[in-house]
Write a protein that binds this DNA or RNA. Structure first.
Lengths: 205, 205
DNA sequence: AATTGTGAATTGATTCACAGCT
DNA sequence: AGCTGTGAATCAATTCACAATT
């Protein structure tokens, strides 16, 4: 696995290409040029081609890419052609909104359980069980969950992250406004809403 | 304003330093070295120092940085020492969760109004008015709003973005899973939850 | 003695330019 | 003729190494 020297950003863009391809598929387009796909994804065509060559050769010179096959190849590369179980920890405002947000499922992720210190009765519209934090470790081990969404307050984020990792979680999508300290074989993507806003405010005159 | 050749990522990190400084302030620490602050922010000390020099010299050699003054300098640079009004468009699951999420206010942002095609009666716990999309343009102009949070479905994202920009919005925090096409004097930060998850799934073995 | 600030070196990502297929 | 794939060139960001300062 030469996963190590492929730019992180290329992997991100792969997801974006994937989404554009899906849209093309819906519109019954079956072939697309790097030029056209790149435009839809908001990047240069050379970048798209370079991104793809990290993983192999998927196009036909003179013609372009087959939408179906490129899409399934990218799916394979991203490792989500099978449904991936995910747990969510911290059922506050944001946490419960994410639980209700169905968008993950069609992208290949299934939130199989949510955990909270106060395991409130799940809302009528929720099918996902909200369980006590104390049962998290065994649940993760039993269901071999590798991914987690972290929506707890900043003060407990590190502690919960440690527990997740100890139980076997390898990737965390972190919404808590904290820098998590994790072993190097664990990946964290942080989404910090305040930081995003602050960043924007720099650019307005 | 030499805003143009300062790495975007440096600006992001500024926000993170800011948060760490805030924490130090609470703990009554009044001086910090680049080494210590960098560690808290999860970066190398040279990077922190380089980031800061884009804006000036704020430290004392042999000693470090004054927490208070560095924090207020960064606040100035990021342009949010005054309260910044923000509108939110699209009061679905995610949108209403963000409305309830109070975290923005203490970072200097105030969500002054929310808009939706179907202006549902605002929940009992919400003080923010939820208005009809048709009133958005005049509201934004009247209140001179420069920033918006976009939480509408992908299908209407571009259209709503156009309307926001036409009304005078200069920065958009976009949660819709779409690539927005905007004029170059408008900044967009996109948070795409599915892309973040997909990206993580690449890294788990 | 400690720690910042910064030019130079390095590493990494993007874009160019064109060779190679279909 | 058209479009991909890719080594080379360029551009950008990070890290190093150390001079400057308190």
């Amino acid at each position: 696995m030469p996963r190590i020297d492929i730019p992180r950003k290329s992997i991100y863009r792969l997801s974006i290409y994937q989404r554009c391809l899906q849209r093309l598929k819906v519109n019954h387009v079956d072939t697309v040029s790097s030029e056209a796909l790149a435009k839809a994804a908001g990047v240069k065509s050379t970048q798209l081609r370079k991104d793809l060559t990290y993983f192999g050769q998927f196009g036909t010179r003179g013609l372009g890419y087959n939408v179906d096959s490129l899409s399934s190849t990218i799916g394979e590369v991203l490792g989500h052609n099978r449904l991936q179980p995910v747990v969510l920890v911290g059922v506050g405002n944001l946490g419960s909104a994410l639980l209700r947000y169905g968008g993950f499922r069609k992208e290949g992720f299934e939130v199989v359980a949510a955990f909270d210190i106060a395991p409130k009765p799940q809302g009528r519209d929720l099918t996902i069980p909200i369980l006590a934090l104390t049962t998290m470790d065994s649940f993760i081990k039993e269901h071999q969950v590798k991914m987690a969404i972290l929506t707890v307050p900043a003060t407990s984020a590190q502690e919960v992250a440690n527990a997740l990792i100890k139980a076997g979680v390898q990737a965390i999508l972190n919404f808590s406004p904290t820098v998590l300290d994790v072993p190097e074989d664990v990946v964290v993507n942080s989404v910090d809403l305040a930081v995003e806003l602050e960043n924007l405010s720099y650019f307005i005159r």
